[in-house]
Amino acid sequence: MLNKEILQVNHLSKSFGTHQVLKDIDFTVKKGDVTSIIGASGSGKSTLLRCINLLETPTSGEIFFQGEDIRHRKGGASAYRAKVGMVFQSFNLFNNMTVLENCVVGQTKVLKKGKKEAEETAMKFLTKVGMAPYINAKPRQISGGQKQRVAIARALAMNPDVLLFDEPTSALDPEMVGEVLSVMRDLAADGLTMLVVTHEMAFARDVSNRVVFMRDGVIWEDASPEELFSNPQREETKEFLSRFMER
């Protein structure tokens, strides 16, 4: 199963009005890949992720998921999204539910699992992210880092084939970044296919096996972390990285 293409993006473009955010993106994700997408703000990283999840409708181009065009897949966008997990910068936990309910509702309502089975699965992943003690808390009662760990557990409980992370640590206080990154590190070690938009260069370098540098809506460079960080091929990549390292 390894090295099988799980996501394939062909000639993807996205415009908001006259502003073209993504320009003819070609991009594939193989099973087990941990891909980091880096780049300055406004370079189209998040939009790419949101197009892959169909939260944004691409203007043109096509996306294949396990060989099927996602726009013509059985069950429509909802069924597709159930297979592709997403973790947001702003957590987006359901405020009207407890931590446990957050991780159960998708399984019972979307995957039609039984309540008991769903709760067992939820507990498994909540334990994995270290949030098992907090299952009775509401999202407003826990910290940002804890929210994000619950959000990861919620996504994992759906048993996704690929998990997308949209700047998962950007809204966190510095001391909470570590706990989220360490959970993500564990997931990468477990062999989960991950696509991570991030500003955490250390994470991109140490955890991912592939780094994509985006600039002005195009993929500027796409290489292994060793190559990209120690020997960037293009001037712009070098410039971006040096700006980042100075901070």
Binding site: L55, R81, A82, F88, F91, F94, G106, V110, A155
Partner: peptide, 9 residues
């Protein structure tokens, strides 16, 4: 978005 992302219609 959170609800859509876990596949809810």
């Amino acid at each position: 978005e959170g609800a859509k992302a876990i596949g809810m219609n």
